[in-house]
């Protein structure tokens, strides 16, 4: 029972990190139809920036906020220079372009910071354990779960409840019709892209405890982010939330119970899920 709770909590925390980082990828891959293999790079950049700032004495949350902002700005620059010419090209060109961008990211970070793992110190008031009644549990992981849930609610509220969200949903379901009624689809996607990159940067910062921060971050965890988006259903925020939590719990359970074949189990599950629902668990209306 206690083990099951720990697996569930660890899985939830892990899933939340995956979700926060993947929101941005849902935007690029799901809404804008750009296969973005460089997405891990934005999370990595956020993590590195925050690590640098914290070492220079900036408090954790200020550093996280600044890194989020910086990742967003980086995303905006990348959108205008690299991604714009890609929208009209095929999937292959997109895969290659963003793969090349990831290589450049990795090489640049190695050149600037070396290959060693960067540690992000957790603030002291989040570092200790907390008593859950039947056992103690790291405070930081509970914090991750809470932040992830809040962000999910926020994203959900914005998409389901605001004018911006209504426009976005319209643009996803039928871009031509949305243009016809006067929605500036391109600008909408650009803004969403920037927000997505900022969220990835944020995820890179607060998830650094679970996803090890070194220059190969961008490639190593990329497959996970892609899987979350593809399994959840391209362009579906709820879907990627469900997928991220499921995959997080399954991988954590696998690591606890079947250490030897954890990765195998995870990808077997992904394989079966994608065969069963090729468009993902909760595809948006335009796809289903």
């Amino acid at each position: 029972m206690a083990t099951a709770t720990v697996i569930l909590l660890d899985g939830l925390a892990y899933g939340m990190v995956l979700f926060i980082i993947s929101v941005g990828l849902t935007v690029t891959m799901g809404l804008m139809r750009v296969v973005n293999l460089a997405h891990g790079g934005f999370a990595m950049a956020g993590g590195y920036l925050a690590a640098m700032m914290i070492r220079a004495g900036v408090p954790f949350f200020a550093a996280a906020a600044l890194a989020t902002l910086a990742a967003g700005i980086l995303g905006g620059i990348a959108e205008m220079t690299v991604f714009r010419p890609l929208y009209r090209k095929g999937e292959l060109a997109q895969v290659l372009m963003t793969f090349g961008l990831t290589f450049v990211f990795i090489a640049a970070l190695t050149w600037l910071f070396g290959t060693d793992v960067k540690i992000l110190p957790i603030p002291s008031y989040l570092a200790g354990p907390v008593d859950l009644g039947f056992r103690t549990y790291p405070t930081y992981r509970l914090f991750l779960i809470v932040v992830g849930l809040l962000l999910f609610l926020l994203v959900w509220f914005v998409i389901e409840g605001s004018l911006y969200g209504a426009r976005l949903r319209a643009a996803v379901d039928n871009p031509r019709m949305a243009r016809a009624v006067g929605i500036d689809v391109n600008r909408l996607f650009t803004i969403t892209f920037v927000i997505g990159c900022a969220l990835a940067g944020f995820g890179g910062v607060i998830g650094a405890e679970m996803l090890q921060l070194d220059p190969f971050y961008a490639l190593r965890y990329l497959v996970l982010f892609l899987v979350v988006v593809a399994v959840g259903g391209l362009g579906s925020f709820k879907g990627s939330f469900v997928a991220a939590i499921t995959l997080g719990v399954v991988e954590t359970a696998g690591k606890f119970l079947f250490t030897d074949i954890a990765a195998f189990l995870l990808f077997a599950l992904v394989f079966v899920l994608l065969l069963w629902r090729p468009n993902g668990l909760l595809p948006p209306k335009s796809v289903a």
């Binding site: 497959v223 593809a230 399994v231 074949i261 195998f264 990808f267 992904v270 994608l274």
Partner: peptide, 25 residues
């Protein structure tokens, strides 16, 4: 091969990862 696009991409990727894990184990 009845799938297309990103789904197909992910499935081919999953097969490669599964095979690599199997060989590793």
């Amino acid at each position: 091969l009845h799938t297309q696009g990103v789904t197909l991409l992910m499935l081919t990727l999953a097969i490669a990862v599964l095979l690599a894990e199997a060989a590793n184990r």
